[in-house]
Structure formats: C-alpha cells, structure tokens
C-alpha cells in the first residue's frame, strides 16, 4: 500500500477493511479446489492479497465457488451463502459455474450458477491458474472501490426470484426464507 492509500483509509475505512481482508470460506465445491492449496501456501501465498481460508461461513466474506456445482452441492452452497454475514462477495472459479463448461449436458450439474445465487465476478478457464485468482482478487478490489460489488444487495432485493429458482431446481427448501423482500412479481 502506498501513501495515497492512507487518505482513502480515512475516507472509507469500512471499504478498505473489506478490500484487504477477503476471507475465503473453505468449501471444496468442485475440481477447482485443487488449485486452492497451492494458492494459500508458500509458493503463491494468497495472504499477500489478504485472502485466507477460514473454517466457517460466519467468519468469511468471500465465497470462491471452485468448479462445477452439482444439484446436491447447490443446496449446500445456498445454505453456506446465506449464513455468511454481509458484505459478502462471490466469485465463480472456472468455466463450469459460468455455463456448465464441459458438463454442459450432464443431468446432475447446474449450468448457470447466477440463476441461483448472485455472483460478483467470474474467472474463466478450465482450470484457471493461480495467477488468475489474484487477478480476480485485484479486480474485486476495484469493484469494491467503485461500489459495484453489490451482488449481496441484489440478493436481498430480488430474494423472491432467487428463491423461486432455487426451489425449481431443488424442490421444496427445508429452511425458512432469509428475507421477505423481493417477492416474485414486484
């Protein structure tokens, strides 16, 4: 961080705090998880960017969705996402969450993850390299700075629509709705 940043700190300390402490939830969703251990250990060292893995959703504010999402995992992802405190950021890692990737015709994987939970950014590639994660993180910083990383706000506002999509995929959900806002038809 250089000197000019200090001014920014004073202007909006919460934003800076968000930016430099992106704590990623430790959840191995798909095959992309194999690049996470190298990224968080000595060679690539994600801690330079303030990214560390944490154990529970309650402590985290970054959700890296590493790879394909099967229908069964989707349920766990929604549960985990809803437990994370705001502000929270989601990044889809790999081409599978974007559009199904090479499992475009599989009967058990979700094709477009953003139909079910909101996503702030995507990392394309199959499998993306560790550098790509860092590019994504710096990109996310910019978005946070500009106030554009607002997926969680969208989730709150359009919760009804998301919930409807989730129920279409998973059947009846056995937990109560998180918000009452954003019902289907408003």
């Amino acid at each position: 961080m250089d000197r000019n940043d200090i001014k920014k700190w004073f202007k909006s300390p919460d934003k800076m705090g968000d930016k430099y402490s992106l704590w990623a939830i430790y959840f191995c969703t798909g095959c992309g998880i194999i690049e996470i251990p190298p990224v968080i250990t000595a060679r690539w060292d994600a801690e330079r960017f303030g990214v560390i893995p944490v154990a529970t959703p309650r402590q985290s504010n970054l959700f890296l969705i590493t790879g394909y999402v099967s229908v069964k995992t989707l349920r766990a992802i929604i549960r985990t996402y809803e437990q994370m405190p705001e502000p929270k950021y989601t990044v889809g890692f790999g081409s599978c969450p974007i559009n199904g990737g090479m499992y475009w015709d599989s009967y058990n994987t979700i094709k477009h993850l953003d139909k079910y939970i909101p996503i702030d950014g995507w990392i394309a590639g199959c499998m993306p390299r560790p550098e790509a994660i860092f590019v994504a993180v710096t990109h996310l910083w910019t978005l946070i700075d500009q106030g554009k990383a607002k997926a969680y706000v969208k989730y709150r506002e359009k919760y009804g629509l998301y919930r409807k999509n989730q129920e279409m995929a998973l059947g009846k959900l056995d937990w109560p709705p998180l918000y009452t806002t954003g019902g289907g038809n408003d």
Binding site: W104, Y107, H112, L161, N165, M168
Partner: peptide, 14 residues
C-alpha cells in the same frame, strides 16, 4: 441432453 433442455434451461435468469 433432452433432460438438460427440459429442466435446467427452463429456469429463467433473474
């Protein structure tokens, strides 16, 4: 492939 069309593709984007 048919199943994917009938099921996943029917779910609308928000």
């Amino acid at each position: 492939r048919r199943y994917v069309k009938d099921f996943f593709d029917q779910i609308p984007f928000v």
